[in-house]
Design a protein around this nucleic acid. Structure first.
Lengths: 254, 254
DNA sequence: ACTATTTATTACCTATGGGTAATATATGTG
DNA sequence: CACATATATTACCCATAGGTAATAAATAGT
């Protein structure tokens, strides 16, 4: 759709040196999309802002129209991934179900997020590259996720769907398996993200569930999420910024 | 033992600027011990060679008497951790037992290594910081570890101690949980490394073992390792170098 | 004690890359 | 069309940190 310019290279809204329109947010997102790819490919420290700019057909200083610095770009990438996980947690919390059912939903959602670029950000990026402030934001968010796992396990133990166990340790074990997905998963492999997510939901709870195994009381007719329409990329978010905005240049604009 | 010098600061063989003797290898190891600590504390890229040297009461160029460069230090740290895991794998391979028993032994050993500094190196350091050559060495070693997990699972399925499942995916799930230990474990917590290792060995196999749960046919009287005498630090290794030796200065010496 | 070798130190060099200033080019508005 | 605004570009700056050269201080051997 939208066959406009003579140049054919997709992916960058800045066509080699011609028509440049499109909204600001769309460009912001293009920067993040490119940045997260490069950060994952080469690692944050080995990726220069010139690398990012080059791949977008612009120059380094242009990036500063959208971000205050390299670390802020890193933070925003992380923020998108976190937002996705956070949405899942909130949806699960809103819906009902047993502790085990909620835990499985969380595993499925979290596993799927882990197979996306922004999801990988959550486990492949180093918090210590962020500013003091953003680091705190990240740590708070991580605690929330950890809390969700532990709470659902505790709920499951309380309602009898999960065998008595140490919620903390079990949460670590489960989260570890899921986080690891962010390190090995590559689209195009033998299994789809959804298949892996489903499989993990069963496997990771097989040891602690009271109801022996395989599909049971989870998935009540009105399914909660699972489908996920906006596959990867794009995410709207025009207003909900305001979180990052670290140090440096930020006053001279606006 | 060995109350010699007036200065009391332990940890560094280079006492503030006085008696300097001791063998070369002991100093080499002191460098690695300090480096791995700093790399874990601050991250590889945020740690400068001056940081390492300072903590040892020496200056940066002195490090080059023992290592060819920063990345070589990183590699050696990794190598020590890998050596420990490799020893475990070889011992397990030498001993007998069912597939499940071997898998559990591997989980226990691997988990324990993951709680040490050098063990953490295996999962916290980025392979891309190494030279092409060393990167290949690391990748080969990682494949061997992955192989061990998969093979024992496959053996277990064959001998009936493990339920039919996809060895690859199960290995990823288990390894993920274990690798995650390297990210959250801190000595001094409520659980000891050994307790965590034992717990994980049970938990991570509970879902796939055929023999319902809890201790069973594992641990045949003649126990294999588990005790581990040389707790942390030190590791002898005087000869078995020769692996690293990347690019740069290496000719001018010797 | 004299010499050779090892192992430090001081003083540099230099590439890299994040960030900035000054300026140009679109874009859109009255 | 002129003017304001947003958004690029070119040309810099400069701190950092890995690495090296020249040299001094230990240590060992004879």
């Amino acid at each position: 759709m939208d066959a406009r310019s003579p140049s054919s290279s997709r992916q960058s809204p800045w066509l080699p040196f011609e028509s440049r329109r499109r909204a600001r947010d769309e460009k912001r997102e293009a920067v993040l999309r490119t940045a997260v790819q490069l950060f994952l490919e080469q690692g944050y420290h080995r990726t220069t802002l010139n690398d990012v700019a080059d791949r977008l057909n612009i120059t380094k200083p242009a990036l500063y129209n959208y971000f205050g610095g390299k670390d802020e770009i890193l933070f925003e990438c992380w923020a998108i991934g976190n937002e996705r996980v956070d949405d899942c947690i909130n949806e699960i919390a809103a819906g009902g179900g047993t502790g085990l059912a909620k835990l499985r939903k969380l595993i499925v959602s979290y596993a799927e997020v882990m197979t996306t670029d922004y999801g990988k950000s959550l486990v492949r990026f180093d918090v210590r590259d962020l500013t003091e402030h953003n680091r705190r934001v990240v740590n708070t968010a991580k605690r929330k996720i950890d809390r969700a796992f532990r709470d659902y396990i505790a709920e499951g133990i309380a309602d009898g769907t999960i065998k008595p166990c140490d919620p903390k340790l079990s949460a670590f074990a489960i989260a570890g398996s899921l986080n690891w997905i962010g390190h090995w998963f590559q689209p195009g492999g033998p299994m789809t993200a959804e298949a892996i997510a489903e499989e993990f939901a069963i496997r990771l709870t097989a040891g602690i569930a009271t109801t022996s195994t395989r599909k049971k009381a989870d998935k009540p007719p009105g399914k909660i999420k699972t489908s996920r329409e906006d596959r990867d990329e794009h995410h709207a978010r025009t207003a909900p910024r305001a979180a990052g905005q670290s140090k440096r240049t930020r006053d001279r604009l606006r």
